[in-house]
Simulated assay, not measured.
Amino acid sequence: MKHQTLDQLHAVAVIEPSAAYSAMTRNQRIARWAELLERNPERLLAAFSGTEHLHPEARATVHGEGSAVAVAFEDTVLRASGLRDDTYGEAKRFFELNDWQLHDIVCDCHVGATMKAGWAAARVRAMIGGNRFLAWLKQRIMH
């Protein structure tokens, strides 16, 4: 499957957002992302490298091939809701996360070069309620 940005698709097609998806709230978008990751909890995902050390402009453009952000971008529902690509900056914008929140989900300083999707799902889900410990505990109990 070849991923294209909305700008690239607009060059060859008329794109109209689906009303059913365009009204998703922040928490609904984040929950959807967690659900996508939970579908295959053992899947190995690539981590972003050293996001906290990058200049903000450089950080925003880091591409997430094979990452938790790429899992979100593979989803037609999230793309229809406005997710434009699988970069760090786009995930930050679309999921309405600050740098430290997104860093907590995708950076290699927590797990090394790869992470399991189930681990990432717990981190993502914690962004809904804000209690990362409870998300971690749920992951341990369920797996």
Rank of each mutant, 00 (worst) to 15 (best):
L134D: 15
S81W: 07
A122Y: 10
V12N: 12
H103N: 09
D85C: 10
F73Y: 15
D75N: 06
E16A: 08
A122N: 10
A58Y: 02
G118I: 07
L44C: 00
E65F: 12
A23H: 13
H103V: 04
W33G: 01
L134H: 06
F73R: 14
G129R: 00
A113C: 13
Q139K: 15
D7L: 14
S22L: 06
M115Q: 14
M24N: 11
F73L: 04
A126L: 02
G118N: 07
N40A: 14
N27Q: 10
L78E: 06
L37K: 14
M115A: 14
N27D: 15
V77F: 06
L44M: 09
G64Y: 08
N27L: 05
C107P: 03
A34N: 01
F133R: 14
A122K: 12
A80P: 00
H10D: 05
T5R: 12
H103G: 04
D104F: 14
P17H: 09
M1T: 07
A20R: 13
P41S: 01
H110N: 03
H3L: 15
E16V: 13
E16L: 14
G89Q: 05
V106Q: 02
R125W: 05
T25H: 00
N40P: 06
P41D: 07
E96D: 14
V124N: 08
L78V: 04
H10L: 13
Y88P: 08
D7V: 10
E96M: 13
V69K: 08
A23K: 15
A120K: 09
A23N: 12
A31T: 12
W33A: 09
H10A: 13
E57T: 08
C107S: 15
S18M: 11
G50P: 02
I141T: 09
L54G: 02
A11N: 13
R59Q: 08
A47K: 13
R93T: 04
A47E: 10
D7Y: 07
M127P: 07
K2Y: 01
E52G: 15
R43Y: 04
D85Q: 10
R93W: 02
V124W: 06
I15D: 03
A72Q: 06
L137V: 13
G64I: 06
E90T: 07
V106C: 11
R26M: 00
F48G: 01
A68C: 01
D75W: 06
V14H: 12
A13S: 08
S81N: 07
E16W: 01
F95T: 00
S49C: 03
